[in-house]
Design a protein around this nucleic acid. Sequence first.
DNA 1: TTACGCATGTAAGAGGTTACATGATTTT
DNA 2: AAAATCATGTAACCTCTTACATGCGTAA
Lengths: 178, 178
Amino acid sequence: MGALSLGEKSGYDLKKDFEHRMGHFWAESLGQIYPTLHRLHREKLVVVRRGGAEGRPERKLYRLTAAGRKALKSWLLEEPERESVRNELLLKLFFGPEMGTETALRHLESLQERLLRRQRVFGGMTQEIESLPVSQEQRAYWHLTLDAGQELCEARLRWCRKSLDRLRKMQASNTSNG
Amino acid sequence: MGALSLGEKSGYDLKKDFEHRMGHFWAESLGQIYPTLHRLHREKLVVVRRGGAEGRPERKLYRLTAAGRKALKSWLLEEPERESVRNELLLKLFFGPEMGTETALRHLESLQERLLRRQRVFGGMTQEIESLPVSQEQRAYWHLTLDAGQELCEARLRWCRKSLDRLRKMQASNTSNG
DNA sequence: TTACGCATGTAAGAGGTTACATGATTTT
DNA sequence: AAAATCATGTAACCTCTTACATGCGTAA
């Protein structure tokens, strides 16, 4: 979790960053962020500065030290660990015979809706990137991660449609036969 | 974790099942499975039976009770929770400017290799399903989950290739300009 | 004889979420 | 006046992985 504070200085803006910019591939709760910042401070990887405008609640602005940037780089060099796979929908679907076709269809339809909503969000983000004051390079990498989200989203949608189709056919043949 | 023991009776075969049949969408460790089985037993959702052939280590075979099957069905009815997103590769890639193109390329190439290997595994599984003694219905749902794995795998590969391409172009233009 | 596969379990600890606690300011 | 947003933090709790402990049988 050392990679939180890269270019800028921030406080609970980190939470916002996680939600708005990295929401589609990473999540972090405040109960995780604050203790981590304290730890990084203890380890001299960040420095704090009091900030915040008049009449606004006080904020603590964190910035990477040279040691912090070094630690970040060495972490970035390491091979990313493979993510643990835990897909509850697929698990339930695997037990489809116990569940019944109607429930399976319901779950799939609800996933489909969520995916369509997310797809619209991606569309908005793609345009938003261009308007933000970041380097061209940062923008390119940002697009890369967004593209991953879109590609996966589309793949899931394709699979959803295909599966809904198959299940409906299954249901139809079972109804007529049994 | 009530859904472990569906049709059959099993012990640490569950672990094998998770690895071989559900490996692409769910993982469960033994340190999780055994305590869970004890809990399910306490809650009268499963019954145990001693088993195992002569000269083989003793095994405990678990089977769902009526109450267990009921609990399973009610769990299957519930809307699956959305999975928590934590993709370390994308997180690191987001910090691409700190990382450098070469490292990004290395990470992506290593992911690509892993995905190609997994794709071959899927190919094998698709054929294997047909040879196993399970119901036609179970087989259909199994195919569904496998199909999800394949679709996602392909999407990731497409994205990998695209990203490698883009990064290589970026690298080339940076080298010639700077 | 060394190691691996079968088989069951426990305990420590890492990692993470949620709820709680506090308090100011701005919007409705 | 109430609710939402900004802002920081703590503590309890849950979940899960890893490592440890044990022991038999078989294959290298």
